[in-house]
């Protein structure tokens, strides 16, 4: 079975059989898209909410808004239909907490909100999520059934 690792600011798609995994998600968000009719899966590991707030935005996989668009395009080019695609979200933790005005530390929460906003705009339904908290996550998206396995250190393992 094909196992594709998705790194930070990276994305990939696979048609069953195959798994997409991303290791050690912190404040970044893993956006998992799945089309159960064609068994096509896509996973993006985004770092920042919005490409429009940033000048240097050539890496489209880095931002929630642009990464979701590209992921969708890639899935469609493999034969997916947007109306069959559902989404699952994971990550978006706040690893460290400080009393500062610096909102970069709340980036996890902002990443989750931006991902939801973009998915809503595109009419993609979010069917489950495991986000927030102050701990890291490793996630595995199984293209045979769309299961998203979430593993943590000390906060259990679950399938969402």
């Amino acid at each position: 079975m094909k196992i594709i690792k998705v790194g930070m600011a990276d994305l990939a798609v696979v048609k069953s059989p195959g798994k997409l995994i991303t290791l050690g998600l912190g404040s970044c968000v893993g956006i998992a898209l799945y089309d159960k009719r064609t068994k096509i899966a896509g996973l993006a590991h985004i770092m920042l909410p919005n490409s429009k707030e940033i000048k240097n935005n050539s890496n489209k996989a880095k931002f929630a808004d642009t990464a979701i668009e590209i992921l969708l395009e890639k899935m469609e080019s493999l034969g997916s239909n947007k109306w069959n695609i559902v989404a699952k979200l994971s990550g978006g933790a706040q690893m460290f907490s400080f009393n500062t005005k610096n909102d970069i530390l709340k980036i996890g929460e902002r990443n989750v909100l931006a991902s939801k906003k973009k998915l809503n705009q595109l009419g993609i339904k979010i069917i489950s999520e495991d986000t927030g908290g102050n701990y890291g996550r490793t996630i595995e998206l199984d293209s045979s059934n769309g299961d998203l396995l979430v593993k943590t250190i000390g906060h259990g393992t679950k399938v969402i």
């Binding site: 290791l23 912190g26 240097n56 880095k62 970069i104 701990y135």
Partner: peptide, 27 residues
């Protein structure tokens, strides 16, 4: 300097914090 904040977790998750700060400026 601020007070410390501590986390016992995956290296990737911990390193994502400084990586994101650089992410604002470049790759």
């Amino acid at each position: 300097i601020s007070v410390p904040s501590i986390s016992i977790d995956m290296a990737g998750a911990i390193l994502s914090v400084p990586a994101i700060q650089f992410g604002v400026m470049g790759d």
